[in-house]
Amino acid sequence: MSSAKPVRRPSGWVVGHVAGAPVVLAPSWLVAVVVLTALSVPTARALTGLEGTAVLVVAFVFVILLFASVFLHELAHGLVARARGQQPREFVLTLWGGHTAFGGAAPTPATNALVAVVGPLVNLAIAGTFALLLAVDVAPRHSVTWAVLWSGALTNGFVGLFNLLPGLPLDGGRVLEALVWAVSKDRYTGTIAAAWVGRGVAVVTFLGALLVPRLLDVGTSMVDALWAALIAAFLWTGASGAMRGARAQRNIEGVSVGTVGRPAVGVGNADSLAHAGAVAAAAGAREVVVLAPDGRPAAYVDSAAAASVPAHAAGTTLVGQVAITLPVGATVDGRLVGEALLHDLQRATRLSPVVVALVDGRVVGLVHATDVVAAIRA
C-alpha cells in the first residue's frame, strides 16, 4: 500500500527503526496474538502431545514465529522499495498481519511489481528452509523443535502463496496492477483491473471455504466459516478501498484552478459594487476579489451580501462593504496542477477556507476548499 501522506505520529507502539522508518505494533496486534494463540493450542497439542501451560507456550511461539515472518515479509517490501527510490514511512504489525506505508507511490510498473513480489518470495524461502530442516530430520518427530519447524513451514507457505493471488489488496494484485499498467500505459487502469479481480478473489475465498468441504464430504465448523467470512470481508474492503484511492488519485491529477476554482477578477477597494459587477461581467467571471492599495488580495465579495444590495444603491456601495476579509497568505499559484496545487491549497486553506488564485500577480480565480474536496471525491 503506498500513498503520499504527510508525516504523522504512528498509531501504536514504536519498537524500533529499520531503513529509516519506525516499526510499529498496532493495538490490534495484541488482539491477534491472543486470539491466534488460543486457536493454535489444539494444533500444538496434536503435534507435541503436551498439555497445560507447556502447550500454551508452544502455541504462543507459533504465533510469534508467524508475526516474525510477517515482519520479514514487510521488511523485504521496504528494503526493495528503498533501493528503487521509494522511501518506506513505517512498518506496522496489525490484526491482519502487517503493512508497509510509503511516502509516495511507486514511480514505474517495474518498481511496483518488484516491491510487491519480494514479500511473498521471502515467506516461500522461509517455508522452504523449514521444510528442508524437517526433511533432514534435525529434530525428532513430535518434539517442540519439530513442531515449531512444521508450523513455520506451513504458515509461511500459506502466507506466501495466498499473497501471490492476483487481486488487490494482496501482493499478487500489485503485480497484476503493474502488468496492466505496463501494457495500458495507465496506472489507473491497472489498479481498477486488479481491484475487480481482488473482489473476485474475495468471493471465491468465501464460497470455496463453504463449498469445498461439502464437495469433499468433510465437516466444517462455525469457526472455519467465520474465518472465511472475515478474510473475504478484508479482501473485498481492501479491493474497494484501492478503487476509491485510484479514482481519487485520478481526480487529484486533474485538479487545476480551472477545474476547482471559480473565475474571478480583482478590483480596487474604492470601487463600487456596480463597477465591480461590470468588470466581472466583461471578463466572464463569477467572483470579485478586493485588492488592497499595494495590490494584495485583501477580501472577496460575498455573493449573498452583494445580491441583497438594491440595484439603485449598487453605484454608491463600496465593494468593501459586502466583502469578507482574507488573511495575508491566502493565495495559491494558479499555474500549478495536480498534487503540487493540492499542497499549495493545503497551506493556504489553513489560513482561510476560501483562497485566491494568482498568475503573475493577477487574480484569476477564487477557490473554495469545499469545491476541492467535492472534485476529488467525485
Rank of each mutant, 00 (worst) to 15 (best):
A304L: 14
L132G: 12
A374W: 06
S256V: 04
T331Q: 12
L226W: 14
A32N: 12
A304P: 00
V356Y: 03
T370N: 06
L341W: 06
A153L: 07
A125Q: 05
A299L: 05
R187G: 11
G128W: 06
G219Q: 08
D271G: 00
G157M: 01
S308C: 01
P297N: 01
R45A: 13
A26T: 10
S272I: 07
G78F: 06
S11F: 10
A59P: 03
G190V: 08
L121F: 02
V373P: 00
L226H: 11
W227T: 02
D371K: 01
G365H: 04
T37S: 12
A101R: 11
P6F: 08
A246T: 05
A4K: 04
A248L: 14
A348L: 01
A182R: 14
Y188C: 03
V364E: 04
H17T: 14
F71S: 08
A116I: 03
P353A: 04
L56V: 15
A292H: 12
A225S: 15
T191W: 02
L179N: 15
W96L: 15
R262A: 11
T259M: 01
V279T: 15
R214Q: 14
M243Q: 12
R244A: 13
M1T: 14
A26R: 07
Q87V: 05
G329K: 05
L149M: 09
P166V: 09
P327D: 14
G238I: 10
V328K: 00
K185A: 13
V309K: 11
S2G: 15
T94C: 09
A239H: 10
D217P: 05
V290T: 08
